[in-house]
Every structure is written in C-alpha cells, then in structure tokens.
Amino acid sequence: MWKGVSVVFAIALVLANGEPVPRNQKNGEFSRYYLYNSNVTGVPLLQAGPAATDLKEDVPTVVLVHGHGGSYLTSLNLDVRRELLESEDVNVIVVDWSIFASMTYAQAQAAVLSVAQYLANALINNGVPPGSLHLVGFNLGAHIAGIAGRLIGGVARVTGLDPSQSPIKLSITDAAYVEVIHTDASGTVQSNGIGEKLGHADFYPNGGRTQPGCANNECHHNRAWLYFAASIRDKTFTANCCNTISEKDSNTCRLSTLPMGTNRLSKTPCLSGIYRVNTGNTYPF
C-alpha cells in the first residue's frame, strides 16, 4: 500500500537531481482539488483522504495543474476539462494552487516543490492508480506535474504545456511517457517558455518560438494548452520527427510522425524525440 510522500523524502529526491529546495515546505497545504467525471461535478477531494468514493474505477484519471496567475477557474482548466469529459470516459482532477500562483513569479516558483509534494500525497491518499494517471501542467504547473509524477512513481504520462523557467524542472524520468509542447521559447526577455528538451517527445509547433495569429508572448504561451485542448477531440496534429534542432528550426523535418497532444497514455517517439508540426492561426488550428 502506498504511503504519503514525506517532506524529507521529497527534499532528498529533489536534491538528488541537483535542484534547490524552496524555504517554505508547507505552501502546498493550501492547494485544493476538485473531481469531475460522468457522475460528479467539482466534488472536493481531501488532501489526507480517505480514498475518494466518487472516483470512477477502470478509467484514466487526468490531473490539470494551472500556472502562474491562474486558478482552477481559468480557461485552461475549463476548456481542457470540457473536451476530456465530452469525448472520453475519464476522471478529471483540477488542482487549485492559486494562493501562491497569484503572487509574484518568484514566490510562485518557490512554492513549486511543496505544491507538487502535496499533490502527490493527495493522489495517493485518494486511491488514484498511477498506471492510468496522466498529469498535465501549464507554465509552472508543468514542473508541478512532473515533480508529482516523480514522487508518486509508476505514473503513465506527464504532459508539460510550455514549461516556464524554474530551477526545479520537469524531467524525462517523471513518468513512463513524458511529452512537452513548446510554444513561446523565443529566448527573449518577454518569452514565458523554455525551449530545452525535457521529455521523451518534445513538440515545437511552428518552430516553438512564435505562433501564427499571435501578436504577443502571452498569446504564444497560451497556445500550448489550446493546442492540447484541440487535440483531444477536434484536431489531429501530426508532427514530423526531426534529426536535430536545426532541422526543427528550418522546417525540414521529414522523419516518422507522432500525434501531438491527445490523452493517449503511451506513445513511441523517434530516437531524437524532437518534433515539429505547423498549425493554422485560429481554433482548432
């Protein structure tokens, strides 16, 4: 039987990856979790359990984690949750860590490890099976999703939607399959995302730096979750494998294909794990 992830273990695990530890290890206790499926709508889950009786068995569970400035009521959660519930038989758990996410970026970033640790505990205590678990995070939420997967162990999939700068990062070892979608990785002061390869498959729509139809970095950044939402029901983003980042940048990728996004728990990426797909400028792109 699983036991909760202790603070000491969480710190040791992060230190083993050479990552600094935030000072306040109790930030995550203020997070809230809401369960949605075909039977219930927004039922609060308790951090310490007992196991949630409303959790549907034998179906995948998708966890949505917002980023800096967000909450469980932001469009990311509302739109992705709707697409999932209307197209599949799933549990959707929406995380709200808005108390710290609403603070400065530095303060929110300092809360990442603790929020991830408490999320891991909540999923374990509520009896969510890791083998059918898909953790999805946007911005700093991408790193929270990854670290939670790392702490739980045996998680099927983690998806990072335009991960932002953080000393504690999503890693390829956080789940059996880790996918990352980069949309605002221009490297300028204004950019929100990071372009480095983090997962088994890293997708760079339109090169990963700017997105068609966008006039600012916030729009480029948000396209990551919009592409993900569209991929669930409305759109198949067939991406080509690239041998190198240079091929990705020059739009000359011609190797095997892989669909970007979706709720598939397992995919088999090419050797490089680098993918490019070109999109339209309006939903569903």
Rank of each mutant, 00 (worst) to 15 (best):
Y36W: 15
G149D: 08
P129N: 10
L161K: 05
A142V: 05
T238I: 03
I93N: 12
V80K: 06
G153L: 05
T41E: 15
V178N: 03
S164H: 09
V63I: 13
G137V: 11
S171P: 03
A185E: 02
E83D: 15
N263C: 08
S256R: 13
L198T: 03
T210W: 05
I274M: 09
R264L: 07
I152V: 12
G154V: 05
L84N: 13
R254L: 09
N17H: 15
A156L: 12
A185V: 04
E57R: 15
V112S: 08
L123I: 00
A16R: 13
H143F: 11
G137T: 11
K169F: 06
G67D: 11
V21N: 11
A101N: 04
L85D: 10
L55H: 13
G153W: 05
Q165K: 12
I152H: 06
T279D: 03
I152M: 06
L133H: 09
P167C: 11
V95F: 05
H134E: 10
D89K: 14
V112R: 04
V14T: 15
W97Q: 02
C214Y: 04
P284D: 06
Q190W: 01
S272R: 05
H66P: 15
L35N: 13
S114A: 03
P259V: 02
A156C: 14
E196H: 01
S171R: 11
L198D: 08
L135W: 12
L73E: 15
L271M: 08
P269I: 10
T74M: 11
N281E: 11
R254N: 14
A224T: 06
T238C: 02
K169P: 03
G70Y: 07
N281P: 03
K26F: 14
G154H: 07
N263V: 14
V158G: 09
V21H: 11
F203D: 01
E179F: 06
K3A: 12
L161P: 06
S191P: 10
L35W: 13
E247Y: 09
T282G: 00
L55E: 09
R233N: 13
T268E: 08
H66M: 12
V5W: 05
S114T: 00
S231F: 05
S171T: 04
A215L: 11
V136P: 07
K248V: 14
G18P: 09
L64A: 08
D58Q: 15
W97C: 02
C253W: 01
V189H: 06
R81I: 14
I194S: 06
